[in-house]
Structures are given as structure tokens and as C-alpha cells.
Amino acid sequence: MTKEVIVKRNKYGIKLILDNHIPFPELLQLITDKFKETGNFFKDAQMALSFEGRVLTPDEQLRIIETITENTSIRIACIVDDDSALEERMRTQLEAAEYAGMPQAVAAEETSTDFYKGNLRSGQVLESYSNITLIGDVNPGAKIISHGSIVILGSLKGNACAGAAGAGNCFIFALEMKPIQLQIGDLIAKSPDKEKNPRALRKKENAAGSYAPQLATAKDGNICIEPVIKGCFNNL
């Protein structure tokens, strides 16, 4: 049995322990062979994916995701760091998504999704032409832009734009929702703390506190932020 690629399953997903010395094309072939052998064990599970033993570029991570999804029926929800605090945040998001009936499009069979991890600092812009999942925080002065919907497994304290090509049926999800400015389709709204006007964000407070997952959607000419509750994704 090869030791260059070791697959371990934990409570919330899959951990890949990868050899740090062999060339990436050879490693990718070993991953392909490994999941062809073991893929049926996971069936149609939606899972988080983490890596250990090797530093991978974003492109290499995406190629590994493509290899797994092409050779199994596993749906990769996101990539997480091998970090207990981040794993806890991922657990919270997965449970909230399951409770709310979150559509599988976030993990994407019929809709492509870009995955990134890391915090966006002031002045940084992250843009995607599909749906986007960010594992990290969007800090004040940073901006995340997507032609589809946005899922942030962290804090949104900067700017976020979903449906950048004009689609008003997209959404923005964050584990902590404290944006400076949101845009969905052609609607733009700023935080009431920053600018008081009729287009200010209409926000429903969550009794669970400001750190509970929240969802921003376009409704009746306004952008509304609501707590994630059962069934809230059904009408998106």
C-alpha cells in the first residue's frame, strides 16, 4: 500500500496526508488511483477537505478537487485548514446549511464553485466568475466579488458583491455578517452604522447573537440580512 497518499476520514470530512517530495503530476495520479479504489466507500457524501504534509497552491488544490469529484460521487463543500478553530467554524456552517436546507449548488454538481482559503486584508480584492466559497475573513477595506453567490466561512467586515453581472437572485452567506457594503445584482446597500439612508441594510437581529450565521438576499428593492433558520434557502 502506498504511503505517498493517505486518506483519513474524520467527523466532518476527509484529510489527505500527502508526500512532500514526489512531483505533483505523480502525486495527482496516486490520488486518482486511491479514490478509484476507495471512492465507493464515501458514496454521495458532501464533505470538507483538508491537506497535511505538503503545501499546495490554489491551482493544485483545485486539481485535486477535480480529480476526487471526477472519480467518485463525493461532493467537496470546501477546503479547511488543519486547525481546530477553523474546523469548528466549518462544523457550524455545515450544520447550519443542513438545518436550513441549503441547496447542494454550493458544492456544485451543476454549478461551478471556486474555493479559496485565507483572510482578505484591507486593499485586497478576490473575484470569481462563478459561485465562490472563502475559508477565512473579509476584513474592513477588502472586497469579495462573485458573478454567482458568496459563502464566507468566517467574518464579513468589508465589502461583498454577489451577482456582479446583474443577477439579483444570488445570495451572500457569512458566519459573522458585519459588512461595510453589500451588493446583490444592481442593488447596493451600506451598513446603517456607516450611512443612514433608505437603501441601508434591513437587518433582522438574531436572538442567538451577532456571531450566528446570516444570509443576505435581495427583496422588494432592498438588501435584507436574516439569521439562517430552517427552510430559509428553499425560496432562493
Rank of each mutant, 00 (worst) to 15 (best):
residue 46 Q to V: 14
residue 133 T to N: 05
residue 149 S to D: 01
residue 143 K to M: 08
residue 70 E to F: 14
residue 86 L to P: 00
residue 148 G to V: 01
residue 12 Y to V: 06
residue 23 P to T: 05
residue 20 N to H: 13
residue 131 N to H: 10
residue 91 R to W: 05
residue 118 G to D: 03
residue 84 S to N: 08
residue 100 A to E: 02
residue 115 F to K: 03
residue 159 N to C: 15
residue 141 G to F: 05
residue 214 Q to G: 03
residue 105 A to Q: 12
residue 229 I to D: 06
residue 102 M to T: 08
residue 213 P to G: 01
residue 106 V to I: 09
residue 86 L to R: 02
residue 8 K to Q: 11
residue 210 S to Y: 07
residue 62 L to S: 15
residue 48 A to G: 06
residue 24 F to I: 04
residue 82 D to G: 04
residue 218 A to Q: 04
residue 119 N to P: 05
residue 82 D to M: 04
residue 41 F to Q: 15
residue 53 G to H: 02
residue 19 D to L: 02
residue 61 Q to M: 14
residue 91 R to K: 12
residue 92 T to A: 06
residue 128 S to M: 07
residue 162 A to D: 02
residue 34 K to M: 12
residue 108 A to D: 02
residue 192 P to S: 11
residue 96 A to S: 05
residue 161 C to E: 07
residue 45 A to L: 10
residue 93 Q to H: 09
residue 101 G to I: 12
residue 230 K to G: 07
residue 15 K to L: 08
residue 172 I to V: 05
residue 91 R to Q: 11
residue 165 A to L: 14
residue 9 R to D: 08
residue 141 G to I: 05
residue 90 M to Y: 07
residue 71 N to S: 09
residue 32 T to I: 09
residue 51 F to Q: 03
residue 210 S to F: 09
residue 16 L to R: 01
residue 135 I to N: 02
residue 140 P to R: 13
residue 217 T to V: 10
residue 157 K to M: 14
residue 210 S to N: 12
residue 34 K to S: 13
residue 52 E to V: 06
residue 14 I to F: 01
residue 221 G to N: 15
residue 76 I to F: 03
residue 24 F to S: 01
residue 46 Q to P: 08
residue 38 T to Q: 08
residue 106 V to P: 00
residue 183 Q to D: 04
residue 174 A to M: 02
residue 33 D to C: 07
residue 177 M to F: 05
residue 29 Q to N: 13
residue 129 Y to Q: 13
residue 9 R to N: 12
residue 200 A to K: 06
residue 91 R to Y: 04
residue 34 K to Q: 10
residue 161 C to W: 04
residue 227 P to N: 05
residue 102 M to V: 11
residue 222 N to S: 15
residue 185 G to T: 06
residue 7 V to H: 03
residue 166 G to A: 11
residue 31 I to V: 14
residue 64 I to K: 00
residue 62 L to Q: 14
residue 47 M to V: 13
residue 48 A to I: 06
residue 70 E to P: 06
residue 63 R to S: 10
residue 66 E to Y: 09
residue 176 E to R: 08
residue 27 L to P: 00
residue 233 F to I: 07
residue 34 K to L: 12
residue 199 R to L: 12
residue 54 R to K: 10
residue 30 L to A: 10
residue 13 G to T: 03
residue 144 I to D: 00
residue 86 L to G: 00
residue 203 K to S: 10
residue 129 Y to G: 09
residue 120 L to G: 01
residue 146 S to A: 06
residue 4 E to Q: 14
residue 223 I to H: 00
residue 152 I to K: 01
residue 95 E to M: 11
residue 84 S to G: 08
residue 212 A to E: 05
residue 62 L to C: 14
residue 41 F to S: 11
residue 22 I to V: 12
residue 28 L to N: 04
residue 52 E to H: 10
residue 37 E to L: 11
residue 199 R to D: 08
residue 35 F to P: 00
residue 166 G to V: 14
residue 201 L to N: 00
residue 153 L to C: 07
residue 19 D to A: 04
residue 48 A to N: 04
